[in-house]
Write a protein that binds this DNA or RNA. Structure first.
Length: 447
RNA sequence: GUGGGUGUAGCUCAGCUGGUAGAGCAUCGGCUUGUGGUGCCGAGGGUCGCGGGUUCAAGCCCCGUCACUCACCCCA
């Protein structure tokens, strides 16, 4: 052991940064609950077979092992969850008899992935997830509702603008099948790389890997290029001349989703149909979401979709739809670039100054009175010169310093940002609401 | 797992063809007998990532190793 160094992929924040993260989490939680979603926390570990069964994603899971195990096999068969949806499916099956459906739940929890870290990709991170789970069936309105909740959640946060791209798996699967592709799954996978390898790269791979001819490839690329903020995109899809029942179904759903989501659009949150996104080869069966935030680059910060058969006990299936927001993925890059921070490093709104050590009981009394009314307060650690005590507050971002009065002199409180100081009564004075808690502070970003 | 880049003070970094370690910012103290931020003066702070090798002498050259970082793979 030589020196303590940061551990790659396991971000840690400074106090003010954590305050900003907490403010974000509090805001998300408030929005989710405002929409009637109940908090539901699942354990950090799942049996490996549970984790690996959904989609053939192999490795990248952190496995639990007991160091003290003396007998050869130390494998517990448990791994840390890598998202919140797979544990939810397991939880729903396990507790199906005790739950009310449709189940509306949210979770804000840590997840772990063993992959190589990069900017915006971490090994330990926090996700905020909302889901609606039905029993045997789930109305399409649920797809619209999770969109609405995420729109509300993101719109009220001071973050760079987010665009939520929506597509539908039935639509693209039906389209590819309808144009004669033998293996639509491969086509989906290849087209999903459009951003990375470009149209020419996709063209080559569609021919070699999916066995499509030029005409078919043209149709695939044409579909992938369709986007739209209103339902007019549907005409462009039909104009391509492909037909298939699944395509019709998916197109109808996507049109509904876009039409319903249009009113949620704000300056900070746009919704757009984008027929290229597919979200991997996993359990999604209908609507798929991908939210992108424009900062330095254009990064995916939320994802989700409809999964009709993720949870099933053989007799009953529990279809669901959900969206996850990558809290760490949103915040860590912004914080790291100094674009976002908390307004202070402590919860305290007020520092009670200490004229002399003898005044400590009196200062404590002032603090008690303020706390009683919900105003976070701390007492200066030592009776230093007032200048030092003000500096103590300033360094931490505490906006107010309280000066206990003396015989014939009233208490006073000073806003150290403006310098304004007024006489005040600890049982009556109250700071503006905005000063009660640490705020999220953002520096110039591209909106 | 593959490939590139980088490791020197708390932070950002300089350090010449090898000659015994520096700046700015930050911190602490003083000017300032209790109301801060600016200014001036001063101080503290370093296993030069780690291990080995070459050399009279290594932050610098060589080998190894670890960590961080960017990209690829992957992205549930």
């Amino acid at each position: 052991m030589s020196r303590i160094t940061p551990l790659s992929g396991f971000p840690e924040f400074l106090p003010s940064q954590r305050a900003a993260e907490l403010a974000v989490i509090d805001s998300l939680r408030e929005t989710f609950e405002l929409h009637g979603f109940a908090s539901l926390e699942t354990r950090a570990v799942e049996p490996m077979e549970q984790l690996l069964s959904k989609g053939e994603t192999s490795k990248e899971v952190y496995v639990l092992r007991r160091l003290q195990e003396t007998q050869g096999d130390t494998d517990t068969g448990l791994g840390l969850h890598f998202d919140l949806t797979v544990p939810l499916a397991r939880y729903v099956l396990e507790n199906a008899g005790k739950l009310e459906f449709p189940l509306r739940r949210y979770a804000i929890q840590r997840c772990w992935r063993g992959e190589r870290p990069q900017e915006g990709r971490y090994r330990e991170f926090t996700q905020a997830d909302i889901d609606i789970i039905g029993r045997d069936e789930l109305s399409f309105d649920a797809d619209v509702e999770v969109t609405e909740v995420m729109a509300a959640a993101l719109s009220r946060l001071p973050l760079p603008a987010v665009t939520l791209q929506i597509n539908n798996r039935k639509l693209i699967e039906g389209f590819y099948t309808g144009l004669g592709a033998q293996d639509p799954a491969t086509v989906i996978r290849v087209v999903d790389k459009l951003d990375k390898v470009g149209p020419d790269g996709v063209r080559v791979q569609l021919r070699t890997e999916a066995g499509l001819d030029d005409a078919q490839v043209d149709l695939c690329l044409a579909l992938a290029q369709i986007t739209g903020t209103d339902v007019s995109f549907a005409g462009e899809v039909r104009a391509l001349g492909v037909s298939h029942p699944l395509l019709d179904e998916g197109l109808r759903d996507l049109v509904r989703a876009i039409a319903a989501a249009a009113p949620f659009a704000t300056e900070r949150f746009r919704v757009v149909a984008d027929l290229r996104i597919a979200r991997g080869l996993d359990y999604y069966t209908g609507t798929v979401f991908e939210g992108r935030m424009k900062t330095h680059g254009d990064i995916a910060i939320c994802a989700g979709g409809r999964y009709d058969a993720l949870a099933s006990d053989g007799r009953i299936t529990y279809p669901g739809v959900g969206i996850s927001l990558g809290v760490t993925r949103v915040l860590a890059p912004l914080i790291g670039r100094g674009l976002l921070d908390g307004s202070r490093s402590v919860p305290s709104a007020v520092l009670v100054a200490l004229p002399t050590e003898e005044d400590r009981p009196r200062a404590r009394e002032v603090a008690r009175a303020l706390r009683e009314r919900g105003i976070a307060t701390e007492v200066a650690p030592i009776a230093a010169k007032f200048g030092r005590q003000i500096r103590h507050a300033d360094r931490r971002g505490i906006p107010y310093v309280w000066f206990p009065g003396g015989p014939g002199r009233a208490d006073s409180v000073k806003d150290i940002r403006s310098g304004e100081q007024v006489d005040a009564d600890p049982d009556a004075w109250r700071p503006p609401t905005a000063d009660l808690r640490p705020q999220i502070v953002t520096k110039e970003t591209h909106p």
